[in-house]
């Protein structure tokens, strides 16, 4: 049940999108998001949708998998759309009681829905084609200049990879403890709010205890292997840009700049 939770799941593959440098993909996604927020006309949105479809095609990610990422935010999308629909002032088309729909409202609602959908599916495409390790590697490399400002980039990246690494472990652990407490008659599914919150204590206490134990063990294991932070540390997989990376970057930069300037 808990195992069904996917936090931007990675689908292994060997397509062009998978082989791109993670930094390229990160910058491309940033360009894409900048583009989305500067779209005003229908043709600009159309261009964005087209870009997404072509990218998904190249990555061999099906429409179904892509749209599945939307499920957790469906409520937010619907909520934003409804709010915009009824609360945008403008030319009134239809009224009932305190509700009124305006031409501008419909426009904004549709635009908002498109924006959020594109935003989510766009970033999902990144996590579908990039493993968490690659992602943090790319992020660390992109943020490297901040080291001059004494931002602990390496440490942050390490924390992120450890956190990502332990999400499945903790989910599994939660599942196990839940089963064990259920075997002793714990009831997580019924009762009022207070009762349900109380029912979580037998789950959360062991979970925290084991998370701290794991952290402690991991720290010891890392120290045993002489880990001392990022200084002088080399990488197993060194990132480098290939021709395809420059090409993709150029396309996405052009897209963002084009939308800002022309639309």
């Amino acid at each position: 049940m808990l195992k069904d939770i996917t936090l931007g799941q990675y689908f292994p593959g060997t397509t062009l999108a998978h082989r791109l440098d993670p930094r390229t993909k990160l910058i491309a996604v940033v360009c894409y998001i900048v583009g989305i927020f500067n779209c005003h006309s229908a043709w600009a949105y159309g261009l964005m949708v087209l870009t997404l479809i072509v990218s998904a095609r190249i990555a061999k990610v099906g429409a179904k998998a892509l749209l599945r990422g939307l499920r957790p935010v469906l409520f937010i999308i619907a909520f934003t759309a409804v709010l915009n629909l009824f609360y945008t002032p403008g030319e009134v088309l239809w009224t009932w009681w305190v509700l009124k729909i305006t031409r501008e409202g419909i426009r904004t609602a549709v635009a908002m829905m498109a924006r959020i959908t594109l935003l989510i599916t766009g970033t999902f495409l990144l996590t579908y084609t990039t493993s968490p390790i690659q992602l943090t590697d790319g992020l660390e490399s992109l943020l490297n200049p901040l080291k001059k400002l004494r931002v602990p980039v390496h440490e942050l990246a390490m924390m992120m990879s450890i956190a990502l690494r332990f999400i499945p472990t903790l989910i599994e652990e939660t599942d196990k403890i839940m089963s064990a407490q259920k075997a002793r008659g714990a009831d997580f599914e019924s009762g009022g709010l207070v009762q349900r919150a109380k029912a979580l204590i037998p789950l959360l206490v062991p979970l925290f205890v084991s998370a701290f134990r794991r952290a402690d063990e991991l720290a010891t294991a890392m120290e045993c292997r002489c880990y001392h932070g990022g200084e002088g540390r080399t990488k197993l997989h060194v990132l480098h840009f290939a021709a395809r990376d420059y090409a993709v970057l150029a396309l996405y930069l052009a897209l963002a700049v084009g939308v800002i300037v022309l639309d």
Binding site: K176, I177, S179, A180, Q181, A183, R184, G185, A186, D187, I201, P202, V205, P206, V209, S210
Partner: peptide
């Protein structure tokens, strides 16, 4: 369960043993 000690949560051993029968 296997390694059941990881499911303990109460303040005292007595209270933890009581969890099942109290349920």
């Amino acid at each position: 369960f296997q390694y059941p000690e990881y499911q303990l949560f109460e303040e005292t051993a007595y209270k933890d043993i009581a969890f099942g029968p109290m349920n």
